Computed example of a mutant assay.
Amino acid sequence: MDTSALATSFGARLPDWVLSELAGVPEVLPTDEDRIRLANRLAERNHREDTGGPFAALVVDSATGRLVSAGVNLVLSSGLSSTHAEVVALSLAQTRLSTWNLGAPGAPELELVVNWRPCVMCYGAAMWSGVRRLLIAGDGPEVEALTGFDEGPMREDWAEQFGERGIRVDRGVLRDEAIEVFREYGAREDAVVYNAR
């Protein structure tokens, strides 16, 4: 087999606007509201900048509130279907901390902050990342109803499954603000819904 035509690497990069947006953000986000507010802000700007869908995620040190990484959905700008905001934020945290296990013994407890419940792909990514807490603005049918995205066949007991693995789930922080971001995206005439099926 001639392997010269095979791809041997792939990657994604945060758009420059994310770093500009984060430049004015304090390194410590002390409250759940501060964390979700930032995720909502990044999600809203992400779709306005046309770099991806209306989704953003953060990895934060639970005890101190220190921001470890930030990610936005990069499917459209990267051409990679796996570059959802959660995967981007987790991967950047793992890169920064030089570990695949964000819950390694002796490491600070980290949490994944997302502007809505993870889709079926990100459910697995979050579960296996090592984070000890999932903080989400909300869950429910609003994302699919307002945007047309297919979030996949999630288990009814998805939050309990996290709990059984030592990952606490907290939800309902600035939920209406998150829903407004999805409503704005769904109202766009040029909104791209990038479901493969």
Rank of each mutant, 00 (worst) to 15 (best):
M1F: 04
A5S: 12
A7E: 07
S9G: 11
F10R: 05
F10T: 11
G11K: 08
L14P: 10
L22N: 03
A23G: 02
V25Q: 10
P26C: 06
E27Q: 08
E27N: 04
L29R: 02
L29Q: 03
L29I: 04
E33H: 07
E33D: 11
I36D: 07
A39R: 09
A39S: 15
N40Y: 02
R48E: 14
G53H: 13
L58T: 06
V59L: 07
T64G: 14
T64I: 05
L67W: 10
L67I: 09
G71L: 12
N73K: 06
S77F: 04
S77R: 12
S77A: 14
G79V: 05
L80Q: 10
L80C: 01
L80I: 14
S81M: 09
S82L: 10
H84Y: 07
A85C: 05
V88T: 13
L90T: 12
L92G: 01
A93D: 02
A93K: 13
Q94Y: 09
T95A: 15
R96F: 06
S98Y: 09
N101I: 05
G103D: 04
E109A: 09
E109F: 00
E111L: 12
E111C: 04
V114S: 15
R117Y: 05
P118Y: 00
M121H: 15
M121G: 06
C122P: 03
C122Y: 10
A126H: 03
M127K: 15
W128H: 13
V131S: 06
R133N: 00
L135H: 14
A137T: 06
A137V: 07
D139V: 03
P141M: 11
E142L: 08
E142V: 07
V143D: 12
E144W: 00
E144C: 11
F149T: 00
E151N: 04
P153G: 13
M154V: 05
W158Q: 04
A159T: 06
Q161N: 01
G163W: 03
G166F: 04
I167C: 08
R168N: 00
V169E: 07
V169L: 02
R171H: 09
G172C: 02
V173C: 12
V173L: 02
R175M: 01
E177V: 10
E180V: 11
E180L: 15
E184A: 15
E184F: 02
Y185P: 03
Y185L: 01
V192N: 01
Y194W: 09
N195I: 03
A196T: 03
R197A: 13
